[in-house]
Amino acid sequence: MPDKELVLQVKNLSKSYRSIKAISNLSIEVGRGKVYGILGPNGSGKTTTLSILTGILEQDSGSFSWFGEEPSAATRKRIGSMIETPAFFPYMSLENNLRIVAQIKECGFDDIPEVLKAVKLYDRRKSRFSTLSLGMKQRLGIAATLVGNPEILVLDEPTNGLDPEGIAEVRELIIQQAAAGKTIIMASHILSEVEKVCNEVAILKNGILLSQGDVRALIKGESILEIKAANTSLLIEVMKDCPFIAKTEKENSGLTIILKEGFAPEDLNRYAFEKGLVLSEIIVRQKSLETQFLQLVKE
């Protein structure tokens, strides 16, 4: 099943800076084609995690694999990464800087103009990197990740330093790349960004994984219903065939349900009644990323 194909597998990764634990026992899995968000406040270990995954830092313990292989320079070539503020040779033109990227990735210079156009820097291709504004530098960083058309993009705070228009553009670019089939792993502390772009998310705080899963289940502002009935097994039976349920999860004595778009709790209640089931309890929870996030981070 293509859904199950993992491009990244992280097992019990830990890293400390002297006495400070940057990440501890982090385990995550990213499937092919996913847009995976790593969400957390500043200092939660996002950049440390991505730095280890891209080979800049060594972990203290734990392991990870890309494409099921041991990480190496060769696997890094299949990944387009941008960690923190992108660094380029300040005295060289954008074009020349991207040529170095292409030479490292051994992929030829053909897609450089296209990549520069994608981030709207084509007109500045002859300018020196040092003459760029912060937002432009960030965009060139994203352009560099696209050189050689890698299978995976690793982006650390990709909209950092951009103005609202730039943020929207970068977001659009990420969505386009995802639509083209790329796997994207993105760190961010901006809730709305993850909510709009990602379909899976891991939430970090102080280097500890608080929660991980489907963004729709975990985060999206959709109605989450908790329902109960006297006969739990009947409840499960009936709800299994319900056409307007997006996701069901068993919880204690009841079910947690996410409705498909356009359906309301009344519809569910009516459906249950028609099938001969009387719901004893319906609790509607409006869960947004914000509440979920704050709730998790407070714990």
């Binding site: 891209t54 800049i56 320079a73 890094r76 990944i79 990464s81 941008m82 490292i104 990735k105």
Partner: peptide, 9 residues
């Protein structure tokens, strides 16, 4: 650092 990220060892 950047060249490491891009794929040099």
């Amino acid at each position: 650092k950047q060249q490491l990220i891009f794929g040099l060892s």
